[in-house]
Design a binder for these strands. Sequence first.
DNA 1: TACTAACCTGTACG
DNA 2: ACGTACAGGTTAG
Length: 278
Amino acid sequence: MQINLDHTINSGQVFLWEKFDSVWYGINGGDVLAVDADNPKLVSSFVKSDYDLFRDNDEFNHVIKSISKDKTIKDATRKFSGLRLMRQDPFQCYISFIASSNSNLQNIKSSLKNITKKFGDKVKFNNKEFYTFPEPKKLAKATKQELLSCGLGYRVPFVMKASNLVSTSHIDFDYLKKADYLTAKESLLQVFGIGDKVADCILLFSLEKLEAFPLDRWIIRSLQQYYPGRFSFEGKTITKNKYQTLHQEIVQYFGPYAGYCQQFLFKLIRESNQKKWL
DNA sequence: TACTAACCTGTACG
DNA sequence: ACGTACAGGTTAG
């Protein structure tokens, strides 16, 4: 099945992508990627790398079949046909979603861009200028003032401590990739600034955990709108305990590729509320 | 254990 | 114009 790059990038999973003419450029860790929207199979990059950015190994047709439990999802997969999960650089993903808490798309994007400008490397690629995402060790050396000037606000201590944990190998992404979902999640939850939602984003988008299903306020709205009465809710905010219960119900219903469902349901509710993307 | 207020910062509303 | 509300949550009490 064809990849739809616009749907994929404009579905809330990445922040540092921008489109020039019909080519999307994205920062992915120390790399800069260029993908032609009309021919997404061809990924070129600044640093040579050959990873499976669009998760072709997931056998997409099988995934779609597996998650198509009802009309809502079937319609969404048809409407946003070609929407994929992207395999992201773990450190960038980790910092990105820590920076995302209680913020909005524009702010998140701006803070992250400031981080790359201040701490990343400037590279020229396809006659354009980009800044890569800094290495953990580089970001761990940042001062409070420098991070404040990026616009992170009260998340500065989150980012400082989180960067330190990675640069000192207390958080090891390769290990977390191999670990099972719950073990990896437990690990991430130890990090100051990471709660259930942020942990699930990191797990889904960069650590190979397709059963992760980030429950943010938009997904809650989506579930309430499209699945009234199916899952257990009380109120609009979700407490620690309910998060776990709800997640279990969701995986039981949608199956092992529940994370893909989250992406479609998120896209669906944001589009229907006419929220802006990148 | 369970619930709530406070929180940087930028922007969209009235 | 200028204040107020609120945004892809988390922590501390």
